[in-house]
Write a protein that binds this DNA or RNA. Sequence first.
DNA 1: CCTACCGATCGGTAGG
DNA 2: CCTACCGATCGGTAGG
Lengths: 213, 213
Amino acid sequence: MTDRESDGRVARGAATRKAVLRRAVDVSSLEGLSGLTIGRLAADLEISKSGLFAHFGSKEELQLATIDTAVEIFRAEVLDVGLSVPPGARRVWQLMTAWLDYAERRVFPGGCFFAKTSSEYSDRPGRVHDTLMQYRSAFRGETTRAVRDATQLGELRADTDVDQLVFELSAFVTAALSLATPAAFDQARIAIHSRLARAATSPELLQEKAVSR
Amino acid sequence: MTDRESDGRVARGAATRKAVLRRAVDVSSLEGLSGLTIGRLAADLEISKSGLFAHFGSKEELQLATIDTAVEIFRAEVLDVGLSVPPGARRVWQLMTAWLDYAERRVFPGGCFFAKTSSEYSDRPGRVHDTLMQYRSAFRGETTRAVRDATQLGELRADTDVDQLVFELSAFVTAALSLATPAAFDQARIAIHSRLARAATSPELLQEKAVSR
DNA sequence: CCTACCGATCGGTAGG
DNA sequence: CCTACCGATCGGTAGG
């Protein structure tokens, strides 16, 4: 009896928390993590300010929880899609295009959550800044590993400067995210394909595997 | 007598306005144009809030005046430096490196004023957004003209896709501004040089003119 | 999860 | 340029 009752409360609490964070991620992708205010979020979700506040304890904790929620989505939409292809040049291509696709598809209404918030917090010390930079460098690490693997597999030229190539490919993606026009997304795909083709040991390596359908 | 007195007031007013805008540009480059608050600016400059307010009439007017001030500085530091070299491949190189240099030199304490504020206002409708986008596209227009001129002069290959090349070169710069590490600035210079060398009809075109000293 | 607060700060105004 | 305000909103707290 008491078990069932408290389970019900816990479940409702978790559902509210989840709804708050989903909304928080959307708002932040449009207006940044400091544009996020507890009062506005509470009004949007039609709960009291202090009711919402009780879930997090401080605005900073809300911001950190919002970042973690965005990371989970980014991981599923970009990293998992990229890594679903076996190591090699095509994995690198897949990783970059998954990143572009996720932004173009507006998984977050403001485009890329991390493009917005990393720029916003680039010069503000604190835990929000540190957490964002840590995730950014973790993702760059995954990209670097994919490029290094492709090099060691002989699919990218042995004299490839791995960090330089990662810089250039990432630059094309982030530029498209920042411009956010259809033309820019196309230009990024063209640039990435041509840069990878130039680094590849064989031109067919970037081709889609022929699927029978 | 009255002339001298009112001239003195006007001059003092202009000096105050100038000091306010210089400070506003610095603060915005660090914390964005919405992080700019009239109260804080007044406290920094040790004048009253309403005294400062009287110079602009609204926060939006202050933001627009701040953008115009930043544009003047950007024009002097980047555009004028780039265009000081005659049309051709080297002018394109000069334009891109002047842009990198200005950010690396921290002309604004937060790096590039426009990188920060364009991202901040990318999804907020209004005059601030419109003004920022207008300046961004004007600068892109100048870059495009420089590339087109270099192509027509025969210094870049006739089959150069001008918009694509502008996209790629700008991407390298904005990526470096966003990362803002010494390594990233170096990687951007390497990427720009190599991309321009590949588009050039002759490798010497990017060389510095030999100066006797 | 709520009502009812707190001090601080926001953009802006009145009147000099 | 000033003092002295305004209503709205901020993050956060007390006490349920």
